[in-house]
């Protein structure tokens, strides 16, 4: 048994589908009240890992505890204290908001069901839609309803699998406000996402690619760990500049962002040497802090992906 403050503590999780190893020895440690970001390219094993944590899938290897219960032997107990939100909307579209909540509350055997449903509706401000069919809600409201459903039994841990995919920025912001509020109440969240701005909203991050955990830590630690130097160039024809720079050594990524070209590399000295000739050629160069996106692309290309 690990100490009280550790919610998830798993070592060497392995999952194979046929001959394909989808998760290859992933170890994670998540503390109470933390918002843990889970990042990685499509098909990297994020969903599979989350599904193993909540007892939907049985790991082929590895061990660990989630909320103090063994993830292999005691997955039933875990289910009572975990709220899982699947990648796609997985509630009944032909039931109303209230009926959906009522159904889930009943499955969890909540005693004062009506109050629990009303509380959930109030919390996410769904009163207006409570008698509307879930299928007729907009994307943002559907996602709120899904959050309300996985919160109804007052879980200690939320496992949210790409909860904000296809949701507009305002709804996304409100969603994150809610998650932070929950974190303040001591509820731990593990969220997988593709959005870098969301990654930065997490207390800690893990990056997984092709089933391997590549890095984890706070956003700053992750950025520092990759040790990239990034320069911005603007003014002049940046596309011509991109082509010419590609022939030179020491760059890892050259990405145009509108009128700016982002150039990053691991070897700071050689990179500076490579760009020096273009300093005078009408381009303005500024050294900047490396962003998470550049770090992740660098990690991913090193992991052998494309």
């Amino acid at each position: 048994m690990t100490d009280e403050s550790t919610i998830i503590d798993v070592q060497g999780l392995v999952k194979r589908f046929g001959h394909k190893t989808v998760v290859n020895g992933v170890s994670l440690k998540v503390k109470r009240g933390e918002i843990y970001g889970f990042l990685g390219p499509n098909g990297s094993g994020k969903t599979t890992t989350i599904r193993m944590l909540c007892g939907l899938l049985r790991p082929d290897g590895g061990s660990g505890v989630c909320l103090g219960w063994d993830i292999i032997r005691e997955s039933t107990q875990i289910k009572f204290q975990v709220g899982y939100m699947a990648q796609r909307f997985s509630l009944y579209e032909d039931l109303t908001v209230k009926e959906n909540l009522d159904f889930i509350a009943n499955l969890y055997g909540i005693r004062s069901r009506r109050e629990a449903v009303d509380r959930a509706i109030e919390r996410i401000r769904l009163e207006r839609f409570s008698n509307q069919l879930a299928g007729t809600l907009s994307g943002g409201w559907k996602q709120r309803l899904a959050l309300a459903c996985c919160m109804i039994h007052q879980p200690k841990l939320l496992l949210l699998d790409e909860p904000t995919a296809g949701v507009d920025p305002k709804a996304r912001r409100e969603f994150w406000e809610e998650v932070h509020k929950l974190a303040g109440e001591g509820i731990t969240s593990m969220i997988s996402t593709h959005y870098m701005d969301e990654a930065e909203r997490c207390h800690r991050l893990a990056y997984i690619a092709y089933g391997n955990l590549l890095t984890s830590g706070t956003a700053e630690q992750v950025v520092a760990g990759e040790n990239l130097t990034t320069w911005l160039a603007n003014g002049g024809n940046i596309h011509a500049l991109q082509e010419r720079l590609q022939g030179l050594p020491a760059w890892d990524q050259i990405v145009p962002f509108g009128n700016t070209l982002h150039v990053s590399g691991k070897d700071a000295e050689t990179l500076e040497k490579s760009i020096t000739p273009f300093m005078a050629a009408g381009y303005r160069w500024t050294r900047t802090t490396t962003s998470l996106e550049e770090v992740f692309i660098s990690l991913m290309s090193r992991a052998g992906g494309d």
């Binding site: 975990v82 899982y84 997985s90 499955l107 969890y108």
Partner: peptide, 13 residues
């Protein structure tokens, strides 16, 4: 097909 099975499986049912 609608994905509701996945949600059902995570509940204690």
């Amino acid at each position: 097909e609608r994905g509701t099975m996945e949600n059902l499986l995570t509940t204690p049912v």
